[in-house]
Amino acid sequence: MIGRPGWVWIGGLLLASAAVAGEGALRPVTIVGREIPEPLTTAPGDPERGRTLVVDRTRGLCLLCHAGPFPEERFPGNLGPDLSGVGDRLSPGALRLRLVDGRALNPDTIMPSYYRLQETVRIGAAWRDRPVLEAQAIEDIVAFLITLRDTPSERPVP
């Protein structure tokens, strides 16, 4: 492990703690079936900002658990499925629910619920009363994930 990025998870989260201001109460969301069909914001999601968030190990945290079509990103985790082609597998509404509160889909999942105030205990002082990501960030990430298509250009031909 020498010379590799260490447990970016730990140090990074501390650094990020002061960066974002809380947005207070959450916007209401409506789950229909296994989706949240309506966007959380009126401004459409920006896929470029979404990508930046997804690969940021201190904000999106996604690469701690998921690999994906991010050739420049070394050492992704493997706690969750590879995100390559996820835009073919899931609709925007399904991606939105997975991000907002994946526990509505699988109560035992270890993927954090990104847009839900946690009823867990001992939330660190810097993280209380705010979701992991803001509503606009969720929309940006959905807009990005939907672009991940299982096309030959994104998957190296074996």
Partner: peptide
């Protein structure tokens, strides 16, 4: 807190023990 999540037909309102 959960009230902030208006739940639909998935019945996600009954979140099991954490």
């Amino acid at each position: 807190m959960l009230a902030a999540l208006a739940t639909g037909s998935a019945g996600a309102g009954e979140i099991p023990p954490a």
